[in-house]
Amino acid sequence: MADNPFPLSREDLLKAYRTMRTIREFEERLHVDFAKGDIPGFVHLYAGEEASASGIMMHLKDNDRIASTHRGHGHCIAKGVDVREMMAEIYGKATGACRGKGGSMHIADLSKGMMGANGILGAGAPLACGAGLAAKFRGDGGVGISFVGDGASNQGMFLESLNLAAVWNLPVIFVVENNGYAESTSVEWAVACDSYVDRASGFGLPGVTVDGTDFFAVYEAAGEIIRRAREGAGPALLECEMVRFFGHFEGDAQSYRAKGEVENLRANRDCIKSFAERVIEAGVAKREEFTAIDREVLDLIEDAVRSAKAAPLPTAQDLLTDVYVSY
């Protein structure tokens, strides 16, 4: 085996690949099953954006908290939420991560530091500030990570949080996952400033923009600002320029996109493909190893779907529980 030119060990490289592949297959499978009508409600898929979630989450431990978005499956998987429980949740089953009460947009697992996908865009930013504040009081070196899309980056809650985190010097990272579209509206139109680095500096915090389809770019930039935050140097903003392989939600005809746009992205900006190629090219792992992971991931997803379908639905009794700790 050749010398490893990457900032991750071989094991971590394979782990990152497995995470990205799991996200991809999870989303691809939902795309198919949603179209069959198997899944209630609506889902927002993260396919194409995997490098962001995995590149950042590779730096985190359970006492680091993340506040996610409506497009949260990838963040959940990368933060270690159980894939079977996630699938069962999306199917609305009693065995789901939230016992069928949250659904795709509200998957959470506080024990893993996953503070919830969030149906309210921008609402996670203050929560991440709270996570950072709690970590600061505990003095455990933990950080809070807020994810928003380019759309929610215009929310007052998000913008207030940038200032608050700077004023309080919180260990919080604001990740803008810029996939170019707020639902159907272009970032070029809806965000007036020239760059998110400018926006961050307007709030008194450093900002970095990276190619969000380049796992290593995300990994290195995130590593640096997370390290700073852990050491008490305060918050930062990380913009990941990335691509969305599916629509805003499933069933979106995407007529606002250019002809051939998605096909072009899948062919040329697939973060998983480029990751695997670079690792194989460097001789750190063999193609067969990735293929083996692919097979295991497919089996996992198949098993998750099968067990989700077979799982019991919540009952009338579950309707009224878990509103309060005590009432």
Binding site: R65, A67, L110, M115, A123, A125, P126, L127, A128, C129, G130, A131, L133, A134, A135, F137, R138, G144, G156, M157, E160, S161, N163, L164, V167
Partner: peptide, 21 residues
């Protein structure tokens, strides 16, 4: 003390509560 940013600090209080404070 907080800046005049009710969303941010009320939300931060809620987030901190969910993290054990």
């Amino acid at each position: 003390d907080t800046p005049l940013s009710e969303s941010a600090y009320v939300g931060a209080a809620i987030g901190a509560a969910a993290c054990g404070m």
